[in-house]
Computed example of a mutant assay.
Amino acid sequence: MLNTETPSLQHPDLDLYDSARLMQALVDDQRAAVEAVRAAAPALAAAVDAALPRIAAGGRLLYAGAGTSGRLGVLDSVELVPTFSWPRERAVAVLAGGEGAMFVAVEGAEDDEHQGRRDIEVLQPGPDDVLIGIAASGHTPYVLGALAAGRTAACLTIGVANNPGAAVLAASEHPILLDTGNEIISGSTRLKAGTAQKIALNSFSSALMVRLNKVYGNLMVDMKATNAKLVRRAVALTMRAAGVDEATAREALGRCDFSVKTAVVMLLKQLDAPSALALLGRHDGSVRRALAGR
């Protein structure tokens, strides 16, 4: 039996717990998710290094999964757009059962290996693309089909699974084992297995964005200011990075379509918006290198 499916011996009387004890047990069990990702950090770093030149060359991040794993892939792909101004068409997730499965479970869809292959093939993948297959069990046919299509198209393949020896890991160039063990509620991989997947995906994509010059220091300077909250965040980031007051930050942002990295270079290099954009372009969008260069 898979580790993720093996009944836990720690809380055999879980259904008898009162709410306080039940909550403590559920929360405490999540600690194993962090430890599992810690153990996988070297493998994740290697995957970032392998993905970086492909993504820098114009490749896409492709995600494939079913159920909770698939929904976490969708979440990671969607969040890259406002957080890092990542083009929507360059972060694409496919989910067993289609888009509707994001909201309503589509039973049996995860068993369709051919559909997994077809869903990736329709995206016309290529050698610059990076495909991340996610499956808690590590044996989901839909994900295995997607990975097979990725390999055929010469994509870089990354497999994320929560069981040692999983087929998804064997089918990937960069296997990421998140060995979370059994679940406090037997077989419910939406618990710590899912938590570990969320941490791993978030860490992988965030590290990749940092390496792609989407961050200055530890500041999110390539965000999209698409609502009032994000406008305030853009102003605060510009104030901090450039050491200016709010009025100065807002004025600079207003002259560059609220691009934080452009505003920072404008203010610190005393440039107009087109010149700051050109300077950033000469330095691959790196604020740090633009400030040090010409």
Rank of each mutant, 00 (worst) to 15 (best):
R255E: 14
G285Y: 03
Y17E: 13
N218S: 13
A263F: 02
V143N: 04
N182I: 06
A40M: 10
L61I: 13
V160R: 00
G59D: 02
V265R: 10
A242N: 07
F103H: 14
A41G: 00
G281E: 13
L95D: 08
K229V: 05
R288I: 09
G165A: 02
G145C: 04
A161V: 07
A273L: 01
T262A: 12
S77F: 01
G285K: 11
V130C: 04
M223N: 11
R250K: 13
H11K: 12
P42Q: 09
V122H: 12
A241M: 07
P274E: 11
R60G: 01
R151L: 03
A64P: 10
R294M: 07
L219W: 08
D18K: 08
Y17T: 07
D272I: 05
M209D: 08
D49T: 11
K214S: 01
A148C: 06
N202P: 00
K229T: 08
D119A: 03
A171M: 03
T140D: 08
S206M: 12
V74C: 11
V168P: 00
S203L: 15
S259H: 13
L62S: 04
S85L: 02
R151W: 00
A39N: 09
L9S: 15
D18V: 06
T248F: 01
R88C: 00
T189S: 09
L156E: 02
R233M: 02
V264Q: 03
R118W: 08
T68S: 13
D111N: 09
R294Y: 07
P164A: 05
E99R: 15
R88I: 08
D284N: 14
T68F: 04
E246N: 03
A41S: 11
A146V: 02
A101H: 07
D257E: 15
Y142H: 09
V244C: 12
L131H: 05
L72P: 12
T195H: 07
L75G: 07
T262H: 04
A47E: 08
R151K: 14
G100R: 07
E5Q: 15
L169W: 06
S205L: 04
H174Y: 09
A154D: 15
G181S: 03
A46L: 10
I184Q: 06
E99N: 13
S286P: 12
W86K: 08
N182G: 15
P7A: 00
A228T: 14
A252Q: 08
V160Q: 06
Q124W: 01
R255C: 10
L177M: 03
L280R: 06
T238C: 07
T262W: 01
Q124L: 11
L271C: 03
D129G: 02
V235C: 09
R38Q: 15
R250S: 11
M1H: 13
G97D: 04
M266P: 01
G98K: 11
P7N: 04
D76T: 11
A252E: 04
E173W: 03
M102C: 12
K224W: 00
L279F: 01
A39C: 05
A234Q: 05
A292P: 00
